[in-house]
Simulated scan of single mutants.
Amino acid sequence: MITFPGAQEDGNDVGVAFFPADGIYDRGGRRDNPAEAEFVRLHNATTRSASRSQSLVTPAFK
């Protein structure tokens, strides 16, 4: 996947990455996924603390 703008094309800290999270979306009830939300929270906290000088975007798809 190529993202725009793409100042750098290679490296572990550029572009978009997919991280599968265990969890099931509660389609008929609360319409949430607590396991996925916790995974995203922990991943973002870890990533953010490792690189405070860069932006972090978390896209969500429905």
Rank of each mutant, 00 (worst) to 15 (best):
I2C: 03
I2P: 02
P5T: 03
G6I: 00
G6F: 00
A7V: 05
A7L: 12
A7T: 01
Q8M: 04
G11S: 08
N12W: 01
D13V: 10
D13I: 02
D13L: 06
D13H: 11
D13S: 06
G15L: 02
G15C: 02
V16D: 04
V16Y: 13
A17Y: 02
F19E: 05
A21G: 09
G23M: 01
G23I: 00
I24M: 10
D26V: 03
R27S: 15
G28H: 07
G29V: 07
R30E: 12
R30I: 08
R31E: 12
R31I: 07
N33P: 01
E36T: 05
E36Q: 07
E38T: 08
E38V: 08
F39Q: 00
F39W: 00
R41Q: 09
R41Y: 09
L42V: 11
H43Y: 03
A45H: 06
A45T: 10
R48P: 01
S49K: 12
S51G: 13
S51K: 12
S51W: 13
R52I: 12
R52D: 12
R52Q: 15
V57T: 15
T58L: 10
T58C: 10
T58G: 04
P59K: 09
A60I: 05
A60E: 11
F61S: 14
F61M: 07
F61V: 14
K62Y: 12
